[in-house]
Design a protein around this nucleic acid. Structure first.
Lengths: 219, 219
DNA sequence: AACATGGCAACTGTCAACAGTCTTGCTTCC
DNA sequence: GGAAGCAAGACTGTTGACAGTTGCCATGTT
């Protein structure tokens, strides 16, 4: 998790595949590569200065994450999202995070969990004064933490494979709109609901939050 | 979807990668390859008669599906599931299928949906007289159909990336136990609940079904 | 006998090249 | 003038080989 805080000998030896993966994911979710663009292996490998084989592995993963889709004859292109798909994505997201909230309510030592969540909130607060990039990151980090604290690895994994789509949704709707969904106060309500330990209440807080967010995004 | 039912010109030209993917998935989910086994690229590529590069692509996808996990220095091994993880998987599964049931209840033309579901039920009925393999397939097909009929591609995709884990759970718990969860009658109750159009009722039918299934599996 | 050391084998990361297929644009023939 | 055929180009599918790293075993040393 905390790979960035290695004080001693920070040998960040990450494979080319992972670097390519991160670079492509970023480029796609920021709109640097327009949706619908055909991703030609030979071109990309030339641009990224890596071999096609290595690139292909990264592309497969991106494909699995739903950021790029396969056309006829293995042609890969950046996925295009419409309003309905954004709604669909947020429906699934709501279902997952709602489960997370319910599981957290069932925990005995909720105190520690609440502490972690409030810490994530503080980070959002700090980021609200910074750029858009940081705000998005802090927001996603909050929700990822929500899933991670359950200790349900499968839940975290499923949420993770949705993260790319969420980022695309944000990019697609425009960053101004998306910023409306990152109010610290509205996220605080979720934490409050979880703190009460009332699973139904917490679940509803999440679904409400997501419904609202989706509505804002599709305008 | 129905790639197997192409009556005219069955040019099943599937790439080696996909063949390897299917073969490995099957081998892992049937226990042919024991959990914890180290998957050595050179060995496997030799066995499957394909090159390492091609194999690696398939392995990445399997990794994303959670069937194999990465150890230190990129060593891949077949994932090992314990009771808690099975419960976790079924929790997430319940959340997804519960969403599917609710979305189906919100549809106007439920009649068509119900018809498709009943068809899947009939298939389960037929399979109940066949071998275990067929019963598992029919059962999973029912649940996949449930998700697919919503028209929510993201939901279907998320469920699909869980399918491998579900199969592993079945294998892990033993096929005898798993067979108890494939009662046609209990699945019929789900369809009935959806037919009423009561979202809360349908949702509860799913969660109950899944809770019971998980309990049986972890025994 | 316990420990350090040097070399060997195994395995993954990465790459460049070959082969097959689909597209495309031009040419040629009716 | 239009359609069939042909050839060149563009990509993807697949492969074998090379390089770097890690773990292990044998060997020598105190």
């Amino acid at each position: 998790m905390a790979t960035e805080s290695m004080s001693l000998l920070g040998l960040e030896k990450t494979s080319l595949r992972q670097q390519a993966l991160a670079a492509l994911r970023r480029a796609i979710t920021t709109g640097e590569i327009a949706p619908g663009t055909h991703l030609v292996e030979t071109e990309l490998s030339e641009t990224l200065q890596i071999s096609r084989g290595t690139l292909r592995e990264a592309m497969r993963q991106l494909q699995q994450e739903g950021l790029i889709s396969a056309g006829p004859r293995g042609r890969l292109s950046v996925r295009h999202l419409d309003a309905k798909e954004i709604c669909d994505i947020f429906s699934v997201r709501a279902a997952l995070e709602s489960l997370a909230a319910r599981e957290l309510c069932a925990l005995e030592d909720r105190a520690q969990v609440i502490k972690e969540l409030r810490r994530a909130l503080e980070e959002m607060e700090r980021a609200s004064k910074d750029g858009l990039e940081e705000r998005i990151e802090a927001d996603l980090n909050f929700h990822r933490t929500l899933c991670g604290l359950t200790g349900n690895e499968t839940l975290l994994h499923s949420w993770g494979s949705l993260e790319g789509n969420i980022r695309m949704s944000i990019m697609f709707a425009g960053f101004e709109r998306a910023a409306q969904n990152m109010s610290v106060k509205r996220h605080g309500e979720i934490v409050d609901a979880i703190e009460t330990g009332d699973a139904a209440k917490a679940s509803e807080a999440i679904t409400e939050h997501m419904d609202g967010a989706a509505k804002v995004l599709v305008g």
